[in-house]
Amino acid sequence: MNDPSKRRPRVGLFATCLMNVFRPNIGFSAVKLLEDAGCTVEVPAQQTCCGQPGYNSGDFDAAQALARQVIAAFEGFDYVVGPSGSCMATIRYDYPEMFADDPDWRTRAQSLAGKSFELLSFLHDELGVDRVGARLKTKATYHDSCSGLRSLGIKGQPRALLATVEGLKLKEMQDTEVCCGFGGTFCVKYPEISEKMVDDKIRNLLATGADTLLGGDLGCLMNIAGRLKRINAPVKVFHTAEVLAGMADGPGIGDAPQETR
């Protein structure tokens, strides 16, 4: 393989399930950011899900089957990058654990884990991107999604990049590091607890007076947006990548097609 430092890094985009179905704009935003940063982006068709729903439900066999599929689909790339802290934490942190008793696959999992990154931490920490050319006039607040924050250390990178978005003012909310109540299948297995948690999150969010909520994981964003829309709170919700790519000019998550800025 060529030395990636001497040519355009070849990035395999991990197209997360939720993004693929619900918010393709995040995927295209990721592609734009990666290409602007000098990467060649490919999207392998043999990918499906990272396996996290199975892993977190205790079906480790199913999770391993999915992990093998992801490893096979992506191991030829210089990097694997996805616009989700949650899915990428599964690949980086959980895959090697899943194959603790299988030396061959463990080696392959570790090798993939070492070159797998969440989008913004990849741009900021690996490629040294420290500013973007986007503009968005808004007062925003940022929700730290748990897997990204605690498994991958994503905290400063999105804020550093958002600070370079012209017109965007970031106001931190209280308890920004506290879970929003999504938790994958948790939100449908324990809907009342989940509702209580998302309401706590929304109370803190509204207290900032922000008109936009940003975050790095679509699951959390759909949860918060879904609740915001249900209570008719006039806050728009975008994935951070959409804003950084200058592609947040359409409807926010859960907004009607005509509700554009």
């Binding site: 197209a15 993004m19 693929n20 179905v21 619900f22 918010r23 393709p24 704009n25 995927g27 295209f28 592609v31 999207v43 068709a45 939100c187 449908v188 297995k189 809907p191 989940s194 509702e195 998302v198 759909m222 949860n223 947006a225 879904g226 609740r227 829309k229 249900r230 998550i253 859960g254 097609p257």
Partner: peptide
Amino acid sequence: LASAWTDSRDLPAPSGRTFLEQWQ
């Protein structure tokens, strides 16, 4: 099949075509 979600939240709707479809 999603009442556990929609009892307390709206479900944000997709725009129509998946990312992979559009990309390809």
